[in-house]
Write a protein that binds this DNA or RNA. Sequence first.
DNA 1: CGAGTGCCTG
DNA 2: CAGGCACTCG
Length: 777
Amino acid sequence: MPDHDSEFLLNRQTKRRRVDNGVKRTVGSSSSLTAAFPADSLITRAVRLPVLVGAMNARHAVDPDLLECQGSQLVHGDPGESKSNVLRKLLKRANSYEEAMVPFPGTTIISQLLKSSMTKNGGGAGGAEPGFPGSALSSAGSEAAQEDACSSSSRDSPGQECPSPFARPAHFEAERLSDEHLRAKRARVENIIRGMSHSPCVGGPPSGCGREREQGDGEGEPEGHPLPHSPRDGYRENKRKQKVPQQQQSFRQLVSARKEQKAEERRQLKLQLEDMQKQLRQLQEKFFQVYDSTDSEGNDPDPDGGNLSEDSARSDADERPARDSGADRSDCEMPDLDPGHFLDRARVQPRERAVMDGERPKREGVLRVRGQGSTSMHAEGKQLAETLKQELNSAMSQVVDMVVKVFAKPPRPLPQGFPPLPEPQDPFPTNGDNPNFHTTNQRLQCFGDVIIPGPHESFGGVPLPSANDQTEALPLVVRKPASELHHHHHHQRSAVGAHGGHHHPSLHPSSLSANVGFSPPSFRQPFPLPLMGYPFQGPLGTPSLGYPGKDRGSPDSMDLSRETTSLRTKMASNHHLGHHRSCSPTHPGSTAEGLSLCLIKSECGELQDMSDISPYPGRLSPNHLKKAKLMFFYTRYPSSNMLKMFFSDVKFNRCITSQLIKWFSNFREFYYIQMEKFARQAINDGVTGADEIAVARDCELFRALNMHYNKANDFEVPERFLEVAQITLREFFNAIVAGKDVDPSWKKAIYKVICKLDSEVPEVFKSPTCLQELLHE
DNA sequence: CGAGTGCCTG
DNA sequence: CAGGCACTCG
């Protein structure tokens, strides 16, 4: 077997150099087969599916190899760690939340809270606070008072002009002055009172003040702010301030009362937070206890003792979900799963256990210890896990809610403050309500995504330079879907395994155990988004892409389909809405992202709906691709003339032609690869005669092909294609059996045969609108 | 040569 | 699926 590898490598090198033109190959190495399937390795075998419908009937006795495979796969699942992992992960999650809380949110939040409240109370009060309402008020007030004083004095002494100081005796002057003082005082008070009654916004000034202080972070007065009075104005200023203590007092009272209130709130919050953290900790401890006890009961070859750190590190390292099948071996061990899967696993496990217990007595050394106790333990663990999870969840969400609430508050008291922070809660409902795909785990992740950063940003102590960071609800909303997608991928990867996601896991409950064609032939677009690699195909075959009749002059956009492809890829992964000049393609939105795209789509008008007719005279559209694929069911080797006829709505040029040709070349490539694969599989499965092989609509081979060329399954594949496929498969089978695959150009013969099997492509395909016509029926 | 093909890679 | 390459054939 090791030879395969070297052979493989060698092949690649030689092959690369020696270009086989497919028909005539001179040098070479073993077959491309070998290349494609180096060593009928685990993968090949693991993926081995029932290829032939009628073919392999009785022969479904368990293949030792398969078992072996499974075994090894399972082993990869790391039984040793698996059991520990779930719990660990749960804890880790909790921990990470706590961690998140501790470094930032938790303690930091609190400390930040305290700090800020302190600065507000203490620092603010301590500082001269020129910005404080009082000062503005007082200055205005005093000025008014002065005017008032003047006028009143003139009133008071009717006959006199405003008395000139020079004209009076000193003592009189003094008296007058004091009198004036008194009057002025009175007037000022009156004035102030009047002013207060006039200004409805008692809170106004404080708010501005608060802002300033917040921005200055309690550091004192805002320096850049030109103060109404220069510090040097000094004395009088101070006097004035002293003279308006009453209103200011009431003012301050209000403010400080408010502050105290807030401080109180904060204190309470802090207490609550601490409480909750305590609870969390307790839960965790509990968890650890139970966990450890379970652990010590269980296998654990290595004296794990206090190996927590290593273990957790390990689980850190492999965040990836365990493959589904990975569970058998570890039967009741907790597989390496994310907490979100825990319940599911837990639900399933009893069943598995039942099966497995009878089945895998080996590895006793490892498993036996757990023995009977494990059953009850298992149940308990399940419950415990559930409970704990709920607890953790609710605790976390409470804390989070709390914090969010509090921090959503502050802006409110400030009437004219910043644009209110967007309610952080918003993202939640949006994110949370995708029941289908949101596991608890994902929900938790949401918290991670949305909440954690939240506190970080908003209480980080760093005054947000702009509220924008938070104002942009969009990114948040969009971001979520992205992670969602990732999750999909993860799941898929884990479930599908080696076969790389051609099939949706749910559609292939067990490819390993599956027999012949078992699939309901009537799966019609049952695939969730990830599989709908074809974003542009709606039920109608789908026109969805709207390119404005842009002139085909631009060379850079020559390759339209490529553009769109990458576009959609981008969109699927990033949320870059098509920065395309036209309105960008549209998804059959089934994710939040899709939804948001839908909105945009609708804004884009109807352009897209007629894309199919002949929207791009000079380009190949996704629909063309689809059409080409359907045509492949009839012809594998279309001539360029034929292509021209059938794609009459396209203005042909070299590029277009070669692109089309390339398409078909790619189609063939896939086709032949499948053929070879399944032929080998059949051979491995012990099929001896080609006539045992049949290709039916429900066999794996056909499904693979159909998946490729007719993804939406909305086109009825002609019988002829099945025949051709069967012939091809048999050709491959025979060739391989005959050992012809040693000849580097062994496929050439097959190609020759197959190329004669092309049949007429129905006339419908000549119509530019054939897709609708075809897919409608 | 250029069209067409297959293989490999990204 | 597209690019790039090697290769064949007319």
